[in-house]
Design a protein around this nucleic acid. Structure first.
Length: 456
RNA sequence: GGUCCCUUCGUCUAAUGGUUAGGACACCGCCCUUUCACGGCGGCAAUACGAGUUCGAAUCUCGUAGGGAUCACCA
């Protein structure tokens, strides 16, 4: 059997990280079984759907690298076929017209809630027709028996059919509801495995009735738990960013995000904390997704991101940086930045935090501007200049630069910490940075001496 | 409230009847060291609670507590 999965977001907002994780699971499962992974935009609610949201979903999926195997499908284009199915169900006696007005419905709803009995319209058993009034089409849910789903994640779960409500499949304005559209499209697209958030678990028992009535092939289900915030409640904005693309903007790499989202609820089950893509594809299994919701932990993401950062090819990181900060560098500046990059990356979680370092690396004529630090430089001007003079005649290798500095402190009978911090400030304007010898070496003779022989 | 689901270190998780309950992140300490980091070594820390089954329970059963999902002419 060829496996087909789908990610089916509704374009009513940005791409949520929970949705992104659902997409990842769908993508991986299809990949693992050499199947297809499709994206279907559920835009049947025209009032709430926007083109901006469609673009946002698109951008998010692209960034994460979980693109559809085929052209993206827009549910709104299939509406006619959904309506047809609604009427087919009606003709076959699996559905009925319901003429309830809003007041009557409201009354029914409060009553059904009180009794714990699902909504069953009185029109279910009333074949008379009041053609003048608006109607909806409701599914005639079975009254007896149970429906059982063998869910990859939730396990075997049974529900009594009597608790199923006669859900609306066609609205009074003759548009199909999600409950219908989703089932029809899944069938048409040949979806074999429905992997979605467990907020849909209840829907599965209701939707499966349509499939039964029509004698369609049943898809297999995997209802994955939602992501929670640190306080255990459903992830929302007050827990921090929930928009996937925000993480891109904050400087996280897509590989790290992919890896982190994946290990929220799933594990490779070995003691190596390694989520390399090819390995993950091989090991992935829906059965191993945990039932309980995981809490989003930014610290773990930071750790993962920093590890990816330090393993990435310098040229790739360099490209990300100059794109993000719109830097235009000459070959000297490029060389300096690239050669310092590996050391710099050890000190940050996200590459945008490197921003503070660009100036002293890139600007040929950079000089420390901070007043308090300048004061220190002034007080030690003589020492700074002396070291500048020593370096002037120094052969430009790391070894000799190192030797040069060591000789100086030896002759003066002082400690490295008596000169190190000052020189560091003179060269970078900062109190922490990669090691001095590397900085001096990579900055080059001209620039280093510029900053050291300056009259502060 | 009805229905369904969940509960192992602070967090993500491993252990599918027998382990000193393992790993990772975070935190703390030590080492390395010219700063800050990286790295190395070590430490703290969990089976929600109560019964039952069993020679033996994190694991099976029941109950309690807590948490979550859902109950739209939204998706």
């Amino acid at each position: 059997m060829k496996i087909v999965t789908r990610f089916a977001p509704s374009p009513t907002g940005y791409l949520h990280i929970g949705g992104a994780r659902t997409a990842i699971f769908n993508y991986l499962f299809a990949k693992k079984h050499n199947g297809k992974y499709l994206v279907r935009i559920e835009d049947t609610d025209k009032k709430r759907s926007t083109n901006e949201a469609v673009d946002a979903i698109h951008d998010g999926l692209n960034w994460l690298g979980v693109n559809s195997s085929e052209k993206i499908i827009y549910q709104s284009k299939n509406l006619e076929s959904h309506v047809k199915v609604a009427y087919e169900l009606l003709e076959k006696g699996f559905a009925y017209k319901c003429f309830l007005n809003p007041e009557e419905l409201n009354h029914l709803r409060t009553k059904s809630r009180e009794n714990g009995i699902p909504i069953k319209s009185p029109w279910r058993n009333n074949n008379s027709i009041s053609e003048n009034k608006e109607f909806v089409i409701r599914l005639k849910m079975p009254l007896n028996g149970t429906t059982t789903i063998n869910d990859y994640v939730q396990g075997k779960v049974s529900v009594k059919n009597e608790i199923l409500d006669d859900m609306i499949i066609l609205r009074s304005d003759k548009t199909p509801t999600y409950m219908l559209s989703s089932v029809v499209d899944d069938n048409k697209m040949g979806i074999t495995h429905i992997i979605r958030g467990d907020d849909h678990f209840n829907n599965a028992f209701r939707q499966i009735q349509i499939i039964n009535f029509l004698k369609w092939d049943k898809p297999l289900y995997a209802h994955i738990p939602l992501i929670h915030g640190t306080d255990g409640s459903k992830l929302s904005k007050r827990h921090g960013a929930t928009n996937l693309i925000d993480y891109h903007n904050m400087g996280y790499t897509s590989e790290a995000m992919f890896s982190y989202l994946l290990q929220l609820g799933w594990t490779t089950r070995d003691d190596e904390d390694d989520y390399e893509f090819n390995k993950v594809v091989k090991l992935f299994a829906l059965e191993n997704i945990n039932k309980s919701p995981a809490k989003f932990d930014i610290k773990k993401l930071n750790n993962i991101n920093s590890r990816y950062l330090n393993n990435m090819d310098t040229n790739n990181i360099y490209k990300l940086i100059i794109e993000r900060f719109e830097l235009i560098l000459n070959i000297h500046q490029e060389r300096r930045l690239k050669s310092l990059l590996p050391e710099l990356l050890k000190r940050v979680d996200v590459y945008v935090d490197l921003k503070d370092d660009f100036e002293w690396i890139i600007e040929d004529n950079f000089l420390c501007k901070d007043e308090n630090k300048l004061k220190q430089l002034k007080e030690n001007n003589l020492m700074i200049n002396e070291i500048g003079d020593l370096l002037k005649n120094c052969e430009w290798t790391k070894e000799t630069i190192d030797h040069c500095l060591k000789t100086y402190i030896q002759e003066k009978s002082i400690k490295f910490k008596d000169v190190g911090p000052i020189i560091r400030i003179a060269l970078t304007g900062k109190t922490n940075s990669p090691d001095l010898v590397s900085i001096i070496y990579e900055l080059g003779c001209t620039i280093s001496l510029n900053r050291l022989n300056y009259n502060y």
